[in-house]
Simulated assay, not measured.
Amino acid sequence: MAPVPRTSSPSPSVALSRDAVVAALRAAGCVFAEDEAELILAAARTPDELTAMVERRAAGHPLEVVVGWAEFYGRRVVVEPGVFVPRRRTEFLVAEALAQAPRARVVVDLCCGTGAVGVALAAALGQVELHAADLDPAAVRCARRNLAAHGGQVHEGDLFEALPAQLRGRVDVLAANVPYVPTGEVSLLPAEARDHEPLSALDGGADGLDVLRRVAAGARDWLAPGGCLLVETSERQAPAAIEAFTQGGLTTRPAVDEELYAHVVAGTRNP
């Protein structure tokens, strides 16, 4: 996306009109310029902030980072710069988790990013023991803001190494929104993701399943009897993901939402 042309920008002390915001976003290539303009206008607190937000969006920054939040599973979650932006298709992972374990009391959001999945599960399930973990310090800081209202704890570290030992064998829902883009395809992602989200949240290795395999191999030790691991993947990767879950000792079931083009693999630890 091109930056907002300086020749058309007003003085910083003068607020941009709605039409000017729409025009700047449309010129920068924003497909839903009108909708985005409404969100930016609502979020900006001063004329200077409005101008800066429009310029950041026109320069290609994710809209969710520009306005500071994303809507996910009917709730707003804080989105800070440099953190993976939750995708709408991941709402299917939440729905599948709730269907699999409607009475879950111990929930872990692994590779949590903003913590959106954990927040959605806690809001739907009620009083739960909620934990989240991520390798990225920026994600951990952001997730702590989002999980605070639910009494959740956020841990920094590499997958299961980050979790408290007392969770071993007690987890009812282990949701892991792992990176699953093959290394060779990261460059094909939209610039919003490629340039503004951490590579560790996108790159899943040669076939995109490196992290998924590690999670599948270690999950059974952390799940309670009847507990469930759920991971998002792609249609192409689903057979290999199912094999990894099966090798990890889990009873496995794939699920698909055609409307969201979302693919989830769920694995249960048998009692």
Score class of each variant (00 low, 15 high):
A23F: 04
T90W: 05
I40A: 02
L63W: 10
L50E: 06
F32G: 00
E71Q: 14
A132I: 01
M53L: 14
A44S: 03
R56H: 03
D35R: 12
P86W: 13
V106F: 08
L41D: 00
C30H: 12
I40F: 05
F32M: 03
D35Q: 13
Q153C: 11
A24I: 02
A33R: 07
A104F: 11
E80I: 00
L130W: 02
V21T: 04
C142I: 05
A132F: 04
A33H: 11
D35A: 14
A33D: 11
L39W: 09
R18A: 05
G151E: 05
A120K: 08
A52W: 11
V22G: 00
V21H: 01
G113Q: 10
A44N: 01
E34F: 01
A42R: 15
T90Q: 07
V21S: 01
A27G: 13
L125G: 09
D19S: 08
L125E: 10
A52C: 04
W69Q: 06
G115Y: 03
L93D: 01
A101P: 00
L41R: 14
C111I: 14
A37F: 00
E55K: 15
S13V: 10
L25R: 00
A97V: 04
M53T: 08
V83S: 08
L41A: 01
V85P: 00
A27W: 04
A28C: 00
A104G: 12
Q100W: 15
T46K: 01
L93R: 03
D19F: 08
G118A: 03
V67N: 06
